[in-house]
């Protein structure tokens, strides 16, 4: 028996379910709640579409695609570190 109160959810709950759906951590009941909410709420529909797009994009790029050479140690720092390692390994 479907309980009306159980089908209606708030925008906060709906957007949380959008996040769960992306990780396939959504139950059947939640799926129905989300579908029903998205039918009537244009704002959450937008959130759903946009965050799906971002999710796909984030999944596609891995850390190598980010700015991975932002920082560089200068030669003095490197020499000091190497010296530290050399001293440690002789212990």
């Amino acid at each position: 028996m479907a309980d009306k109160k159980q089908i209606l959810i708030t925008c906060k709950e709906a957007t949380l379910l959008v996040c769960k759906k992306q990780e396939k951590a959504i139950s059947l009941k939640e799926k129905i709640q989300l579908k029903a909410h998205l039918l009537v709420c244009r704002v959450c529909q937008l959130f759903n579409i946009q965050s799906a797009l971002l999710h796909q994009h984030l999944k596609k790029i891995n850390n190598e695609n980010y700015d991975s050479k932002v920082l560089q140690l200068d030669e003095t720092q490197k020499a000091a570190l190497q010296l530290q390692i050399d001293t440690e390994s002789e212990k």
């Binding site: 850390n63 932002v70 920082l71 570190l81 190497q82 390692i85």
Partner: peptide, 12 residues
């Protein structure tokens, strides 16, 4: 180690 990996690990 430092020559090969210090910058890599720092950025990681």
């Amino acid at each position: 180690w430092i020559t090969l990996y210090a910058d890599y690990l720092l950025n990681f």
